[in-house]
Amino acid sequence: MKKLYISWLFVLSVMVVQAQQKPHYTQYILNNYILNPALTGIENYWDVKASARDQWVGLNGAPRTAYVTVQGPIDKEDTKTTPTSFQLPGENPRGESYWENYTPSKPHSGIGLILLNDHTGNFNNFTANVTYAYHIGLTPNTNLAAGFGAGINQLHRDMSKTDFGDGVNTDPAQTSGNINKLKPDLNAGLWLYSRDYFVGVSAQQIIPSAISYGNNTAPVTGKAIPHFFATAGYRFLLNDDINALPSVMVKYVQGTPTNPQFDVNMKLQYQDLLWLGASYRLQDGYAGMVGLNVANTFNIGYSYDYTKTALNTASRGTHELIIGFLIGNRYADTCPRNVW
């Protein structure tokens, strides 16, 4: 057991300093803002979301991620297109008549805040970012948004939480294994969206920085590297009550063994009330998702991931929960209009 834990600790160290350094999300399709700051202020209300992710349950030191995001529009002047665009009894508010009358948003700005904490082994990575985006209309049905986020990132390693057996928490090969690094963080993105589709590109952790700890006998060195994302999705109206929303994400992180990484998703939404989804991550595994929109006040989503990798022998899967609140929802939207 001691050897297994030390081996796992070594793997985590390599992951942090050499490969992917940003957490995975299964339900990013419910909050693409966590990947792309261009979505800041995209809706008619302030969107508050909180999420917790417990990855590879049962594996000691496995990643645990939590975040809170808040973002909303500034001087947005959207109006309902017709009296019937408000919900009527017995009518789907996101049915065919709604999308036939879809119009792009007028030029406006948005501001937001992201607080993210990712804990893996004895490493803790905290990020705080303030975001800004500007949205313009390109065609009668299409908007383009550009945004950026700026803030701080703190990487902390606490060797007191490491167990080398017999109560020893100091690596004999390293006299200074603790880390407490504070550095600037910068993200940027573009988001093209309409009534039928969205396409986005973004970059996180744009500013590279060195990471090192240990001593001359057993140094561990690496650097924080940029992460690049490309996402796209399309809306199909299967009938007046059910929307099918397939989407894909491509992620590139220099130094990871599988580059690029692909996620394929399918979301089926019944009116504005209930949705089911499935996801496949290439060379990794599958996920199932379910969610509920409660009136025009809040929404909730849950996902479970099953990995096909060797971790499946020790892990009981991954759980992720996300809760959203719609504040200042003056048009009583029961689900997002521009983010699916």
Score class of each variant (00 low, 15 high):
79 T>E: 14
85 S>G: 06
82 T>K: 11
73 P>V: 11
86 F>T: 13
76 K>G: 00
94 R>N: 10
63 P>T: 04
89 P>D: 12
82 T>D: 07
76 K>A: 05
80 K>H: 03
65 T>P: 09
65 T>I: 11
58 G>K: 11
73 P>W: 06
78 D>V: 06
94 R>Q: 05
67 Y>P: 08
76 K>R: 15
80 K>F: 05
71 Q>N: 14
67 Y>W: 14
88 L>V: 06
95 G>T: 08
74 I>Q: 03
89 P>W: 04
92 N>I: 10
85 S>D: 14
87 Q>W: 01
99 W>N: 00
58 G>R: 10
86 F>N: 15
58 G>E: 10
73 P>D: 06
66 A>V: 14
91 E>D: 10
59 L>H: 02
74 I>P: 00
90 G>S: 04
71 Q>S: 11
74 I>A: 02
76 K>N: 14
89 P>A: 09
78 D>H: 12
85 S>M: 11
74 I>F: 02
96 E>M: 05
92 N>G: 07
60 N>C: 03
82 T>Y: 08
84 T>P: 01
82 T>W: 04
60 N>V: 07
79 T>M: 08
88 L>T: 13
90 G>Q: 07
76 K>C: 02
71 Q>D: 13
70 V>S: 12
70 V>C: 06
95 G>V: 10
77 E>R: 02
58 G>V: 05
86 F>M: 12
87 Q>S: 14
71 Q>I: 00
94 R>H: 08
68 V>Y: 01
90 G>E: 05
91 E>G: 01
87 Q>M: 12
90 G>L: 09
84 T>H: 09
80 K>D: 03
75 D>T: 01
89 P>K: 09
90 G>W: 09
92 N>L: 08
63 P>R: 02
75 D>H: 10
72 G>R: 07
69 T>W: 05
95 G>R: 12
94 R>A: 03
79 T>C: 03
65 T>R: 07
89 P>N: 12
83 P>N: 04
78 D>E: 15
93 P>Y: 04
91 E>H: 08
98 Y>I: 00
70 V>K: 04
83 P>G: 07
97 S>N: 13
88 L>F: 13
84 T>L: 13
86 F>P: 04
83 P>F: 05
86 F>A: 12
80 K>E: 09
74 I>R: 00
91 E>T: 15
66 A>H: 14
86 F>W: 12
95 G>P: 14
87 Q>N: 06
61 G>N: 11
97 S>A: 12
65 T>C: 02
61 G>W: 13
77 E>S: 03
80 K>R: 14
77 E>M: 02
94 R>W: 14
62 A>C: 05
89 P>V: 08
95 G>I: 06
71 Q>H: 15
94 R>T: 11
69 T>L: 06
72 G>C: 08
86 F>L: 10
